[in-house]
Design a protein around this nucleic acid. Structure first.
Lengths: 249, 249
DNA sequence: CGGTTGGTTGAGCTGTATCAAAAGATGTGG
DNA sequence: CCACATCTTTTGATACAGCTCAACCAACCG
């Protein structure tokens, strides 16, 4: 059942995989905390017509903190980081972005984070004023973005809680738990989590030194909670004790 | 030139002070980073018709984490805290809310923070579905909420940066700086900041023990950066060195 | 193969959590 | 109005966790 090239309209399941999409917990009730695809196919099709798809190589800076904000992006695939340069030269990673995330919206005339790809990424690009014009015409779509922002706010509050923890291994465990829920729709597939970012990035996300992250990783492994099959993945070995540690403070 | 009481319509400056209002940095450019009143008088009047004004005494819990989310609130006046109970019994304050702030929106069927007044507060209450229904009819108002959420997201990211700092006095300085910008519109009026929350609340917001907050306060005072005229206010004495400390990491 | 970047390991030091207790506020009832 | 009980904040002493600096190891790339 290979998709046939029709003359006018694009086949639906092709849209599914090619049009932009937003991942978040819905506003109303949902099957206990699993993120869903917010936009309807029609809305995604609509967005696809006003946006431009693009592929970006790894380690590419999309914009700098302070640049005039003109574009909004939706992540189709890949992994990016959003960070801020601090006066000391230190960097603070505010968030990692995966498929279904938006960025470029959270500003006021100027971007307030720097944005950089980690892996090769597929993005959808929107001119900010085109998007806001669409919002005025289509409040339903605007509402989806509102839900997405709400979700991001929750995630950010979660980050504060992570960083506020005292014990390094606990922070790291919360971090693994956090990214295990990102980048895909529906419930968790497997115990193995992809983790494309560097240890240094993880460190500046959870508020530890890279050395502390390294030691905490060793510690979690020694306690039999997790394993690191490759450099960029974690596997939860003992889910029960792992979850206990995550919610331990 | 005193305003005359016309027969039908309410005098404008009365609306100004009685109708709900949202404080945030606007989406477009603004006079360098000063928060403004987002809603137009007409929009505020509109919101006033679908919302209910209410006064709440101090130390009153409005809702608990996990409760079914039915209402959205806008703060008219006063100060509240939003916090989460952690497994250890510890509390983490996610934010302090002042005039022009929204809460109750950042959820998904259930509230995910507990909300409690600190001082006596004047609020506007909205039924969540009435508000979302309004959004579908009036995308302009919806857009203002979107801006507000964006602003809250920025603030939350800022909190993460505060908590990630290593030095206690630096965190405290960042905290003073943060709340000095909240609760009022336009540029800063004075060097004296109102600070109605307890030291314990401050501690659990910036991620320190209450003792550490106490010591850091003493330290800032000893260094001649700030003074504490009363228990619930701070005065910036040396703005230059204070700002240096705030942006020191 | 050197060069570069990213990650791990080790030793010492600083700063904050923790525990215990005193001192200040705040509120209540006689 | 004062005395008492309760709660919040401050102060002091100690222990420990993570930062820092420095060296070492591994992977990647021309």
């Amino acid at each position: 059942m290979t998709p046939r090239a029709h003359s006018v309209s694009i086949p639906v399941h092709s849209i599914r995989h090619r049009a932009p999409s937003l991942r978040a917990l819905p506003f109303g009730h949902s099957a206990e905390g699993t993120p869903v695809r917010l936009l309807t196919d029609r809305q995604r099709e609509h967005l696809a017509t006003i946006g431009t798809p693009m592929k970006v190589p790894p380690r590419t800076t999309l914009y700098h903190e302070g640049d005039t904000a003109t574009n909004v992006y939706i992540v189709q695939d890949g992994c990016l980081k959003s960070f801020r340069e601090l006066a000391s030269g230190r960097r603070h990673v505010t968030s990692f972005l995966f498929a279904g995330d938006v960025f470029g919206l959270a500003e006021h005339g100027k971007y307030c984070n720097t944005l950089r790809t980690i892996t090769r990424s597929a993005l959808y690009l929107f001119a900010a004023d085109t998007l806001t014009a669409l919002f005025k015409r289509d409040p339903e779509i605007e509402f989806q973005f509102l839900c997405k922002l709400t979700h991001e706010l929750r995630e950010s509050q979660r980050q504060s809680i992570i960083v506020a923890r005292r014990d390094a291994s606990g922070r790291l465990a919360m971090f693994f738990d956090m990214i295990s829920r990102e980048g895909h729709y529906g419930p968790l597939q497997s115990a193995t989590i992809k983790m494309p970012m560097s240890r240094v990035d993880i460190a500046s996300f959870v508020g530890l030194s890279p050395e502390a992250v390294s030691r905490a990783s060793r510690d979690l492994k020694a306690r039999g909670l997790v394993a690191f099959p490759t450099r960029d993945s974690v596997k939860i070995l003992d889910r029960k004790r792992f979850d206990e540690l995550v919610s331990a403070t």
